[in-house]
Design a protein around this nucleic acid. Structure first.
Length: 581
DNA sequence: GCCGTTTTCGGCCCGACTGTTTTCAGTCG
């Protein structure tokens, strides 16, 4: 049993926390090196627990020492250095470090001076007013730390918020700030703008002539349950007792620089700032400027700043410091896809499905508004309990689609189905009935817990079925609530490529399936094609396509690898390659 | 601890806010 990437990352996070205590500082070069290694592992789909020392060291940011620790963890289930540090620093001291405002220096001070090593001890010490006797701390610190203890739950690693929920909060905050006098521009930034799957804090950027009025309005917004800090240009609050929202206000002329700074990632920013220094420039959240003279050379737009650093604008989704800067510099970063590149939608439900909410005509009318050239209606097939369509109902729907077709001359209308992949890879209906469909998307809706070899066989069996043109939301994950099925990605990519079967990039923020790491792996190691689909159950869900396209960008997917960027004739030809083979 | 068109040592991004300081240390992003 080898260690999963998640468990390796968790172990390295522990290593970081203990090393901060050992070093007595929050940002030693060692801890930064470990954190860089964590980022590298998070960005790869390689199972690092299976890699050799040499293979690990080939990864950017992993050197001899960290590679050895990963191998050690993979074989022993623990890292010796962590075990040793645990003797010196009880694990409860890590809980103290999670309290907002408490860093390694203060936590060490608490241990040395007051023998405080856990949250209970700290609470007692505060009640006895012992903290104010320590150097650098006073009555106000005591009060602040007491308040912070109540926020502990919001800052633990387990409470990252799924992107769909965080996006809702961000949109709400932005809508409310939009009405505040003096606000010029508002944008969300941070990991939300990078389309991370889960979000720690929501970052909101506002431009305005004066910061204070905006900050005041922000900390008074409905739903704000705690104010963590506020100054003239920035503030942090907790919304709905649940998620931290950070606001930053800058002058409008600094919008581009601020958006870059606030979008991150940290690693991307550090790399860019280094690149600036190499060119005699310095980059901060206000501008890119000359070191010698202070003259501003770019600040207004992100593109201006990238250009002055001899880079093409880099789409936010790929700013993870995983090679995007070098790729932008040498022109190998794919051109970012746009919603307008898509000509068709290949996964659309209607109210014929039990869970569909809009009628066929409503979905088609809205598709025309989207200026789509082709669409596949793919209601649930019969094996899906409650929501699936029987053969009789499918034939009725086929008739309706046939009748309605002439009302939509601009739209090539395909009658498809969302087929269910059974535990053995079989799908609904029978081969003869399946030939009645113009199109088939097959998805996993059950049996999520099978072992990897069975999931892999199951997917490949479905991929080999001539009725299956696209595999829908291939992993079946629901971000934050259900992990995807465990499958051998390379084997599935290979089978799909060989049979001209596309893999879906599902646009729902709850799904974003396939994951970006797998997309990037697929692009680099196979020729498999993708379909960006909305899986819309209502006309309003068509707008989710923006997230599917953003997910493709995050996975470095060029539009040449997406079948629904093809024009209608080329698309029909492409799907015919499998159906007619 | 990592890394290398100033390579095997000597560097390593930048600024806001807070509380405790009379000029700065700690924390955070």
């Amino acid at each position: 049993m080898t260690a999963s990437n998640e468990s390796v990352i968790a172990a390295l996070r522990q290593l970081v926390a203990y090393t901060k205590l050992e070093d007595g500082q929050s940002q030693s070069f060692r801890t930064r090196a470990y954190e860089k290694a964590i980022d590298a592992i998070a960005a790869t789909s390689d199972p690092v627990g299976d890699l050799s020392m040499a293979e690990l060291k080939r990864m950017d940011g992993i050197g001899d020492s960290t590679a050895r620790k990963i191998v050690e963890f993979s074989s022993n289930g623990s890292i010796g250095k962590v075990d040793r540090l645990k003797q010196r620093f009880p694990p409860t001291m890590l809980d103290l470090m999670r309290i907002p405002g408490l860093g390694p220096k203060t936590v060490l001070l608490l241990q040395e001076e007051l023998d405080v090593i856990d949250v209970e001890g700290l609470t007692e010490a505060i009640e006895k007013q012992q903290l104010r006797s320590l150097p650098g701390l006073g009555a106000k610190s005591e009060e602040k730390i007491a308040n912070s203890i109540s926020l502990l739950g919001i800052h633990s690693d387990e409470t990252r918020t799924p992107i769909a929920e965080a996006m809702d909060v961000a949109k709400r905050v932005m809508a409310e700030l939009d009405g505040v006098k003096g606000v010029l521009r508002i944008e969300y930034a941070g990991s939300l703008r990078r389309l991370s799957e889960t979000i720690g804090d929501i970052d909101i950027l506002v431009t305005a002539e004066a910061g204070s009025p905006i900050v005041d309005a922000f900390i008074g917004l409905p739903g704000v349950t705690a104010v963590l800090g506020s100054g003239g240009t920035k503030a942090s609050v907790v919304m709905d007792d649940r998620i931290q929202v950070d606001l930053r206000v800058v002058p409008d002329a600094a919008f581009g620089a601020a958006l870059m700074y606030f979008t991150g990632s940290k690693g991307h920013n550090i790399a860019l700032r280094q690149r600036a220094l190499d060119r005699g420039l310095t980059l901060n959240e206000y501008s890119l400027s000359e070191i010698d003279t202070g003259t501003i050379v770019a600040s207004n737009t992100e593109a201006d700043i990238y250009h002055r650093l001899n880079l093409r604008w880099i789409t936010p989704e790929v700013r993870e410091d995983t090679g995007e800067i070098a790729a932008s510099g040498d022109g190998t970063l794919p051109d970012p896809m746009h919603v307008s590149d898509l000509r068709g939608d290949l996964h659309v439900h209607t109210d014929w499905s039990g869970d569909g909410r809009s009628t066929l005509r409503e979905m088609l009318d809205a598709a025309v508004v989207r200026q789509l050239e082709y669409i596949a209606i793919t209601d649930h097939a019969e094996d899906l309990a409650m929501n699936g369509l029987s053969r009789e109902r499918m034939l009725e729907q086929r008739d309706e689609i046939h009748e309605i077709r002439c009302d939509y001359p601009s739209l090539a209308l395909l009658h498809g189905a969302e087929l269910n992949i059974g535990p053995d890879g079989s799908i609904d209906y029978d081969p003869e009935f399946l030939t009645l469909f113009d199109f088939g998307v097959a998805s996993i809706h059950s049996h999520f817990g099978l072992p990897q070899n069975e999931q892999t066989d199951r997917l490949i069996t479905a991929i080999n079925n001539p009725a299956v043109t696209v595999v829908g939301h291939p992993s079946g994950r629901r971000i934050g609530t259900r992990p995807g099925v465990d499958f051998d990605a390379d084997a599935v990519f290979g089978a799909a490529e060989e049979t001209n079967t596309a893999l879906e990039i599902n646009s729902h923020l709850h799904r974003l399936d396939l994951a970006a790491t797998l997309l990037r792996r697929a692009i680099e190691t196979s020729g498999v094609m993708f379909a960006i689909s909305t899986d819309a159950h209502h006309t309003s869900a068509y707008s989710n396509v923006q997230w599917g396209v953003a997910q493709a960008r995050k996975g470095w997917v060029p539009k040449e690898r997406v079948i629904n960027t093809l024009d209608t004739d080329s698309f029909i030809e492409w799907i015919g390659k499998k159906r007619n083979s």
